[in-house]
Design a protein around this nucleic acid. Structure first.
Lengths: 352, 352
DNA sequence: AGGAATAATGTAAACGTTTACATTATGGGC
DNA sequence: GCCCATAATGTAAACGTTTACATTATTCCT
C-alpha cells in the first residue's frame, strides 16, 4: 500500500514472491497450471505491491490489443449512441476495450480517425461510413485485411462482400410508406439526410419510391436536408407550398422526423391532423412523444451484438462469415393519420 | 504497395532509406531537425512500405499513451452521449484517443471499468460517478495520483478538492422551481432518479426544496424512479391520487420529464393544461417537442471542452487547477403553464 | 530404488518504439 | 587550410510483457 514513484512491474512481483517473471505471468493470466502455493504467493506479492498488469507490454509482445475501434458519424443521434453503448457492453463482456471516433458524416474525417485507430493497433473495427460501396477507408481495410464489420451500412454491387449488419432499409422504407398510403395519403414526400453522406438514406429513398410507384402515385424528388446545418423550417415551408401539397412526410430518421414535426407545427400545421409524419430508426424517445412517432424500429441492440460477434470471429481468424440482415418492425404511433379530405390551408403563422 | 505478411517496422524504413532508426523516428515525429533531403527519403521509404507508426512501441517506451478514458453511466441518455461526442472531438484535436466504458449507474461496474482502462494505461480520465463524495474509484485515482476530471458530479465536503466541471445543480434546480411557482403552482412534486445512483439528483432535490421552502409551500418527498427498470406510469398514478394532487412536476432529467409526460398523458392528464412538467439538462430533442420542454440547459459542449482542457493540464503536470462551475440557462418552453384554478379530475382512462 | 514420464518453474529473446549519448559531417572565421 | 562550434546522424539501451525452450522437481510404475 506504499506509494511507489513508479508502478511495480512484473519483475518486482517476481522478486518479492521469489519466483521467475514467467511464473508471475502464468499466474496472472491463468494460462498454464501453477502449484497452488506458488500461485498464492504470487497473488499476495502482487496485491502488496499494488501491481497492475501493463497492457502495453503485453500488447507489444502479443501483437494483439484486445481493443476494437468504433467509428460512427455522430453520437448526437440516439441510434448511434445506443448502438455504441451496446457494442461497449458486448465488448467489455468479452474482455475487449472500445476506442471511439466520430466523423461528423465527413469522409475526410473517416480517414484521419481510422489512421489514429490503426496506429493504436486495434484488433478490429465496427463502423458506419458515408458510402459503403465507395470508401477509401474500407478499401484500405480490405487491402490490409484488417477485420471490420459495418453497421447500418448496406454495401451492394462489387462491395457486397463487405461484412455488414443492419436491416433491409429498402424493404422497411417501402413497408412504412405502404402504411402511409394505406392510411389514404396520395401526396407523399420524403425528407432525407444528404444522400452523399448516407447510403442508408439512399436505400430508404429507393424503398419509398418502390411503394409510391407500386401504388401508381406521383413520385416527387426527396427533400434533402443537411443534418447539422440548415434550417429545416424554410425548406418545409417551400415543400408545403407545392400544389398539390403533400399530406404526409416520410423521414429518413427519427431525429429528422422530430425536427420536421417541430417545424411543421411552428408553420401552423397540425400533426397528424393536417399532415402526417413517419420516421425511421425507432429511438425510444419517439415512444414518449404525444402522439408517439410512427416509425421503423431497428433492433439496435441486436445489431450491436451481432456486429461484435461477427467481428470477434473475424479477429479470431475465421473466414468470412457473411453479413446479417436483421428484422425490423413497424411501430405504429399516432403521427400518421387519415388525410383530411378537404385540406383547408392554414394561415401561415410563421414568418420566414 | 506490396502486401506484406507482417507490417513494416521502423527498422525496415530505416534500412530502405539507408538511415538509422533514430533518424526515421525523428522525421516521423518532427521532433528534431533533419536535413530536408534525408527527411524526404525517409518519408518516401515509409510511403513505399506502407509504414504506419506503431503506437504500442511508442507507448511502452514513453510511458504515455495519448489516450484518455471516459467512464459514464450510460450513453442512452443524450446528455452523456453528447458530452462524450464533444470530449472525443476535443481530444482528437489534441491528438488524444478516447477509450470508453459505461457503468449502467452501478458503482460495482465503475470498479471493473476503471481497472480495464488503467491496465491500458490511459493518461487520464473524464468520468461521472454515482457519488463523487464517496467513491472507491476516486479514492483509488487519488491514491495513485492519476489525473482525472469529473463531469456533472459536484463533489462537496471532504471531496471538494476533486476536480470537476458542471453547473450549480442546486441553484439551477431552485431557479426552475421558482419559475414553476411563479406560474402559480402551489403543489409541486419532484420526480428524481435514484439518489443512490446520482449525486446530481440529490443536489437538484436540494435546490427544489430550497425554492419550495422559500415560497413557504409544503414539501413532499421526491418520487424516486429507477431509470432503466420501473414503470413510471404506476408511480405517477399514485402520485396524482394524492390530495391535494400535484399540479406540477420537476424532473431531475429531461429524459425523465419526457417519460413522465408520456405516462401522465396516457393516464388522461393533459400537459400542460392539467399538469405542468419541467426537466433538467437541455437536450436538443426537448426543443423539438410540442410544446417544447421547459428545462434547465447545461452547456454540454463547454463542459466537455473545459473538462478536457483541465485534464490535459493535469496530464501535463500542472498543479491542481480547481473545478469549474459553468453557467446554466433556463429554457422556457410550453410544458409549464398556469394551473387550472379548479382542476376537474379527468376520468382515469388508463387501467393499471 | 531407479528411471521414465510428466508437471512446475526458470531463462532469455523477442515485440517496435524513443532517446540519452556518442559520433561524424558541415560551415565559418582566421 | 585548420580548428571549433554546431548541426546531423548513428548506437544501443531501455519500456513491461509473453512464450518457446531449457531445466529442475515430482509422481508413478515396476
Amino acid at each position: 500500500m506504499t506509494t511507489k514513484l513508479h508502478r511495480a512491474t512484473i519483475r518486482d512481483v517476481a522478486e518479492r514472491a521469489t519466483v521467475s517473471v514467467a511464473t508471475v505471468s502464468r499466474v496472472l493470466n491463468g494460462s498454464e497450471r501453477v502449484t497452488g502455493a506458488t500461485a498464492e504467493s504470487v497473488r499476495l506479492a502482487a496485491e502488496q505491491l499494488g501491481f497492475r498488469l501493463n497492457s502495453i507490454g503485453r500488447n507489444l509482445r502479443s501483437t494483439k490489443t484486445q481493443t476494437i475501434g468504433v467509428i460512427l458519424p455522430t453520437l448526437t443521434h440516439p441510434v448511434f449512441a445506443d448502438c455504441l453503448q451496446a457494442i461497449e457492453i458486448a465488448a467489455s463482456a468479452a474482455g475487449y476495450s472500445v476506442t471511439i471516433a466520430t466523423t461528423s458524416y465527413d469522409p475526410a474525417n473517416e480517414e484521419a480517425a481510422s489512421e489514429r485507430l490503426l496506429r493504436n493497433r486495434v484488433d478490429g473495427l465496427i463502423l458506419t461510413v458515408a458510402n459503403a460501396n465507395k470508401s477509401k477507408l474500407l478499401e484500405k481495410l480490405d487491402r490490409e485485411s484488417k477485420p471490420y464489420v459495418l453497421v447500418y451500412n448496406e454495401p451492394t454491387g462489387a462491395a457486397k462482400h463487405r461484412p455488414s449488419v443492419g436491416v433491409d432499409n429498402r424493404l422497411a422504407a417501402k413497408q412504412i410508406t405502404e402504411h402511409i398510403i394505406a392510411a389514404g395519403h396520395r401526396n407523399l414526400r420524403m425528407i432525407s439526410g444528404p444522400f452523399a453522406q448516407s447510403d442508408r438514406a439512399r436505400s430508404r429513398a429507393r424503398g419509398f419510391a418502390d411503394a409510391v410507384a407500386h401504388a401508381k402515385l406521383e413520385l416527387t424528388e426527396p427533400l434533402q436536408v443537411d443534418f447539422m446545418r440548415t434550417d429545416v423550417r424554410a425548406q418545409l415551408f417551400e415543400a408545403m407550398s407545392a400544389r398539390p401539397a403533400p399530406t404526409a412526410f416520410f423521414c429518413s430518421s427519427d431525429q429528422l422526423a422530430m425536427r420536421a414535426m417541430h417545424s411543421l407545427r411552428s408553420l401552423g400545421f397540425r400533426v397528424p391532423d393536417d399532415v402526417s409524419v413517419a420516421g425511421f430508426d425507432g429511438i425510444s424517445l419517439g415512444e414518449w412523444l404525444t402522439p408517439a412517432l410512427t416509425t421503423v424500429v431497428q433492433p439496435t441492440h441486436e445489431i450491436a451484438d451481432t456486429a461484435f460477434g461477427l467481428l470477434k470471429s473475424l479477429i479470431d481468424g475465421e473466414r468470412h462469415l457473411g453479413s446479417a440482415r436483421l428484422h425490423h418492425t413497424l411501430r405504429i404511433g399516432g403521427t400518421v393519420a387519415q388525410p383530411t379530405t378537404t385540406l383547408i390551408h392554414p394561415t401561415q403563422k410563421g414568418t420566414l
